[in-house]
Design a protein around this nucleic acid. Sequence first.
DNA 1: CTGTTAGCGCGTTCAG
DNA 2: CTGAACGCGCTAACAG
Lengths: 352, 352
Amino acid sequence: MRTRLKDVAELAGVSVKTVSNVVNNYVHVTPELRARVTAALDELGYRPNLSARNLRLGRSGMIALALPSVRGAYFSELAHLIVREAEQHELTVLIDCTYGDLEREKNVVESFRTHLIDGIILVPWQLGTADLRAREDTTPLVLLGERMAQSADSVAIDSRAAGQAATEHLLDIGRRRIGVIRNLPRNTGGVVSRNRLNGYKRALAAAGLEFEPELIAEVDFSHGKDARLATDRLLALPEPIDALFCFNDELAMAAMRRLHEQGYRVPDDIAVIGVDGIATGTAVTPTLSTIDPDKQAIAETAVRMLVERIEGSAETGPRRVKAGFTLVPRESTMGQQHTRRRRRTAKHVSGH
Amino acid sequence: MRTRLKDVAELAGVSVKTVSNVVNNYVHVTPELRARVTAALDELGYRPNLSARNLRLGRSGMIALALPSVRGAYFSELAHLIVREAEQHELTVLIDCTYGDLEREKNVVESFRTHLIDGIILVPWQLGTADLRAREDTTPLVLLGERMAQSADSVAIDSRAAGQAATEHLLDIGRRRIGVIRNLPRNTGGVVSRNRLNGYKRALAAAGLEFEPELIAEVDFSHGKDARLATDRLLALPEPIDALFCFNDELAMAAMRRLHEQGYRVPDDIAVIGVDGIATGTAVTPTLSTIDPDKQAIAETAVRMLVERIEGSAETGPRRVKAGFTLVPRESTMGQQHTRRRRRTAKHVSGH
DNA sequence: CTGTTAGCGCGTTCAG
DNA sequence: CTGAACGCGCTAACAG
């Protein structure tokens, strides 16, 4: 059944240490011995016991990735990149879904698989600054999102700049009455959503337009039903809107769908832009204009920062890194002729 | 820094065993002692070392989920359900991406985090029956997909029935010249793709139609470019097609997009149906008709079978479970009026 | 270059 | 009901 280092040692007639050396590719082993050990190794079908190794070494080579859900397109793309990036550092990723639940988020930062994971990457949803400051667990932690940058390492795009860029794009193509569908801030934080809205306001102000609260609709989740209701509410306004800025792409796609059902043309009647740069945005008709965060950079940075913490090679205080994003104009704002003329115009905003 | 059971014991003035008892909620502990231990426990901020516990217990409470990628909508939805299901059994899921690479798949079933994971759920892409039969590792394994059902537990929908149902639906609405975009079988296996095609042929035969190889287009990946080329090839046929059966939803969405670009209307000119039942299928215009595998049942069954193997409570031989699927007709085959008349018609095919 | 030995932290016998 | 001692499998000192 399960064979231990010792069994192999006995069969090969050497000491445990020697077998260990061979397994771990140590240099100073006689070729002859190495051969004998190797033979014994796969005669017995030896598999190292990583629990024992971890116990001994004090690290496991695993990191946790905790996010609200791996179902949505944005998070699944991000998770993919993080898994890929972790691999470069010989780390395995352990996925945990928090469902945006506060208790689960607390559990992640306090006592999730203790001493079994070397570090944590968390996308917080409800967790507040206070929770983080009161944190007792010392497992290295990196946050994805702009929240609570004081209390731990974090990486995120500049949400206000993103909100501003999206709004400016709509203004650039001549829209003046821009509705917003924002996902509701779930806690006192809600910084991301609020910052995007601030960017929106800022762009309006710069264009000499007044901010009108009635143009802002809120939804709880990114799901179809809520987005539909929000869209309907904006469509019911006495003075009609001519553009829609949705705080994520799935919201935007649901809204576009609803606009179509209600007989509006996108972008002719109403231009639509989202945030996230999800892949399906290029597969729908019209293709979806979006603010595309540099997910690759986010993944790279998050893993790198975590590794630095794990190795203890990082400075002491919490670090806050800004990732870049790209405005990707597509048909939902530029119209069909856009696709034929220029294949892809993109404005870059690089990370800090 | 890190406090061990022993430290707590000393502070509380009791033995290690007693602390362990408290930590593990054993019954027979004096309330007074329990209180003292509990106090010491959180004064020192004790966190159990799971590596040590795992070593001692011989199991880890973790299972691996290995799939080609967590990026695509289908796999990410499936992963989500599996994580959720594993949670019910107090298991944590460790995600590994194989990228459909043979070496990586082999590594998963042979020596992936040995003795650290209690079981493996694998979506094989290239791995063959031979590899599986030659497998030396004894970690419990459940396969997702119809391949190699002889050599390990597996759960999947009946691909031939699915292919047949999709084709029959297109025939039902009066289409007679049905193009197919299939994802290329990557190895000698490719059972899923081949079975779906067999279902297609069978439906044609039942309708008295002849199978025409020129109607079958193959793509390597589900990605936009390939799907576009495949669509173009089918559109270039001398005798035009009136329907398109894509072997997955992302392919179908890319194809619909291409049809639109080329000036075809869906479903008026060409009806389109996919497979997978991904969420965005309801957000695009027209909404996508699809064969929707019972992902919940797949996740449930896979985890349950794995748990049975881990606990040793399963019969000896490999088990092969069929999951159900549902035909979900939407606008891409039924047209717009469909949406208004009946909200959702679905034909069920239950699992075996 | 190789063998011996002592823990890593925990659960679990066995005594008491 | 509680305390002491052992061993899970492995790596790293320390001899030799």
